[in-house]
Structures are given as structure tokens and as C-alpha cells.
Amino acid sequence: MKNVTVVVVYIFGLITGILATGFLINISAETVLLKEMASPYDFEKTVEVLAKRINSTKNWHVTAVIDQAAEVKGHGEGDIGKLKIVQYCSGKYAYEVLADDNRKKISVMMPKTFSVYEKNDGRVYIAVMNGSFVGKIFKGETYEILEKVSLEVEALLNFINFKFSLF
């Protein structure tokens, strides 16, 4: 191949690659940032199990359980179906992150949230921010703290691993 052709092909390939990657990441954003999992339990039981698991885990506690359906209805709107938001926090990790002024902006993601809802198919789902993805945006000490948080949140959600329990 002639050198000029090679250079043109490479530059064209590079530009196409950059554009295609940007475009594809854009269309993947929804699945990347929000994760939805089917719960093995009914609505009330799911909320109860989540709250119980959070409160019995060292350093973690539930800060509020918001009945979002009642909230919406209470403000004169229609029925959205069963939907509760479980807010939870860890004083330990919140301190580690927020004690540093440069990291105070991360408080916008606090407290952490699980959303539990029932869809029209009758199944109950849990939605979470994909913390393991979001956490990777940060580097250094923040990255390491958020990695530990991510591990503990995974443990909180362990019960959904066993839809057809073997053990």
C-alpha cells in the first residue's frame, strides 16, 4: 500500500473509531448508570428484607423509607403503583469521603438509595445507581473508599442472587 493511502486509512479509521465510540457510549448510558434487578420476594417483603439487611450490617443504617406512591398521590397526582425509596447511609464512609473539602461535592450522591417497585407484570424490582461504575470516575483515595462501599453494597444485595435457591 502507498504511504499516503496508509496515512489516510489510519486517520479515517481513528476518526470513525472516536465518533463510533462516543455514539455507542451515549446510547449505553441508561444501562450503564442504572441497574434494575428482579427481587425474589413480594413488594413489602423486599422493602423489609433490604431495611433489615442494611440495619444489621456494621456501619450501615437506614435513614428513611419514603413511600413515593403516597407522596405523589398526596400532591394530587395519579396512582403510580407500589414504589418505595429506601435511603441508607454509612457514617464511617460518609466521614471518610466528606472530611476532605475537595470531596464534599460527592455528598450530592448521599444518602445512597435503593428503589423498590412493582411493575404491571406483577414482579417486584430493585433499582440502584450503578455505584461500581460511577465510583470508577474518581481516582486515588476516593476510588479506594468507593470500592469498599461498592463491596459492602453488593453484600447487602446478596439475597437476590438466589432466585432458584440451591442451598
Partner: peptide, 15 residues
């Protein structure tokens, strides 16, 4: 790299 540079990882994944 998904655990460290997720956007780089996404580009490599598509390719």
C-alpha cells in the same frame, strides 16, 4: 479496565 477506566473499557468493548 472496567474496574478502573470504565470509559476506556467501553470503547475497547465495542471494538
Amino acid at each position: 479496565f472496567y474496574g478502573y477506566l470504565p470509559f476506556v473499557s467501553a470503547g475497547l468493548w465495542y471494538a
